[in-house]
Design a protein around this nucleic acid. Structure first.
Length: 283
DNA sequence: ATGGCTGATCGAATCAGA
């Protein structure tokens, strides 16, 4: 099973690039962040024509996350659902079954209400969680407090909604640099909202639930970077960061056989400032 | 010490990103 995560920085601005990438790579699952679009304006039909079903959480102008899948999805959840008053669309989750027939073209079970979501038992599936962690702007800002709080809420949500032994993949834009080797110049980023003891502590807490950073495990040398600043010739100078992460539960992480960043998507006309991170797991 | 870029928004200057 191939799963990818990509912060597209507006799905409308990136629509043609997204469709071309889906056609070229055909991942089983693609998690998107920063859609910046309301539900009605997401390119539902074009993505479906490419062979992918979509579930997502949306809001105007900012944030927005989606899971695109060639495999059937079920048990879709939007948001942390913890009772907090939070309008920001930053999480969507769904269960998929590797090796199952395609979500769009293949045979599929129908739900009683005919909604067309495959009605397959969750046991044996992989829980896919697509997240867009708040950036936090400045360490002394309310936005940074919201970031820390959101990460605490995510940990609580994972402990509450997933079971020990369940296959889980949590991927997306974490806005955290896990290791100094994941920055072109860690000294320049130290103390910012992306690289400081507090966010690293939150990531460690997520890993404390058993999740493993599978890209880091496969790349002990550091990187690969997944984001480069639009300004200051960030990409040509390779001044990047690895902030788009794929975390997996222990047994799922052991199934990881490949992990890379598609740097080509940071090139050419109208790129996102993030590149897709692509991970392969044995089914 | 910081911006340079990009995208969205009642359309020009502002917010936000990281």
């Amino acid at each position: 099973m191939v799963i990818a995560t990509w912060n597209v920085n507006s799905v409308r601005a990136r629509k043609e690039r997204l469709l071309a990438w889906l056609a070229a790579h055909r991942p089983d699952v693609l998690c998107l962040q920063e859609l910046k679009v309301v539900r009605d304006d997401f390119p539902w039909e074009e993505v479906r024509a490419a062979g992918y079903e979509t579930v997502g959480a949306f809001q105007p102008t900012y944030n927005g996350v989606a899971i695109l899948s060639r495999l059937p999805m079920a048990d879709v959840v939007e948001g942390l659902g913890d009772g907090e008053d939070d309008p920001q669309a930053r999480l969507v989750a769904a269960t998929i079954w590797p090796g199952h027939a395609g979500a769009v073209d293949g045979p599929r079970k129908e739900t009683a209400d005919g909604a067309g979501v495959a009605s397959v038992p969750r046991d044996g599936g992989v829980r896919v969680v697509c997240v867009y962690v708040p950036n936090g702007q400045e360490p002394d800002s309310d936005k940074f407090q919201y970031k820390l709080r959101w990460l605490d809420r995510l940990e609580a949500w994972l402990r509450r909604t997933t079971r020990p032994g369940e296959r889980v993949i949590v991927c997306g834009d974490f806005n955290i640099v896990p290791r100094d080797l994941d920055a072109h110049d860690a000294a320049a980023w130290r103390g910012t909202v992306l690289l400081n003891p507090e966010v690293r502590g939150r990531l460690a807490a997520l890993e404390g639930t058993g999740l493993v950073d599978v890209v880091a495990r496969r790349h002990p040398e550091g990187g690969p970077f997944s984001w480069w600043d639009y300004r200051m010739l960030g990409f040509p100078k390779n001044h990047g960061l690895r902030i788009d992460l794929v975390l997996a539960s222990p047994a799922q992480a052991d199934r990881c056989i490949d992990a890379f960043t598609d740097r080509d998507q940071r090139k050419g006309e109208k790129p996102s400032d993030h590149a897709p991170v692509v991970v392969t797991f044995r089914d």
